[in-house]
Amino acid sequence: MLVAVPCAGADCVLLCDGEDGTERGRIDVGAHPVHLAAVGSAVFVATMGARAISVVDGGAVTRIGTGTLGPSHFAVTDDGLVLVPCTGGDVLAVIDAGSRSLRRRVGVGPEPHDVAVTGGLAYVGSRVDGTVSVVDPNAGQVQRTMETDGDARIQGVDAGFGAVYAVDQAGARIVRVDDTGVTARASVGENPYEAVVVANRVLVAGRDDGTVTSLTPALSDPTVHEVGGRPTAIAAVDGTPWVLDRDRDRMLSLDTERSIPLPAPAFAAAPTGDGDTVVVAHYDDDLISLVSTADREVIWTSETPADPFEPLVL
């Protein structure tokens, strides 16, 4: 198992051995890498401080220009298009994964940050005008633009249950959308960032009020878990939601309310896919850890270059 970690403050991707955390190397990838996606045999790197993404394949790094600042996330369509919201601008870049080239840019709401794909359509949220654009990636056209709220700041957009959940950070709301429009809304905790679909629930952490709101797919029957601290993200490990805390050095099971001590507060995590283990990034402390949720222990911790983001486990 190999763990790849984009280190935003060091402009590189760190590689670690999954067995013991030993560093296996670093790859210079460009300014401010924040997210990775495995596409075929390649790893795509969203370099948010550039007008390009990087692709690592065949032992080399290739850059693909987006023409617009701030590639921040990825979504991949079934037919091999890599979609990249450019959050410093107002476009969704459509990359042909096969030819490693920019196929086109599609104009969307300003400062698009996240993208999700469902039913062959891409959903892109705007941090500025609170809209969600529905894009046909192959046609390169916006099918419709949905208003969520005039003051909304859409951060995460996450697919699940045949729809997309858009999180309004400013309004502390979550909105369910599909290609027919907005189908449901619900309030969540303060300063939410993204939604996580686990089992048959939609979970949203409220970073500023220490809550995790659990909702049905229709955004009904809310249950508010008062977890305290600064819940930053939720990792689904073997079907169980674990709450990562940016202030406290622990991760908490939302199901059992039992916690696992960590060497430092956590920011992001990626399940290894190997049962009950998860790689945790300690962004503020330049560390990553491998954690066993079954044994409730940290298996190893390694130092990283500055600002490790969400790992990719291969």
């Binding site: 590689l15 190397g25 390009a52 032992g59 080399a60 790094v61 290739t62 220009g65 490693r100």
Partner: peptide
């Protein structure tokens, strides 16, 4: 690929 890149292949092209 990742390990080869980390071994020093660096940026191959800038497209």
């Amino acid at each position: 690929s990742l390990l080869t890149a980390a071994a020093g292949a660096g940026v191959a092209s800038t497209a």
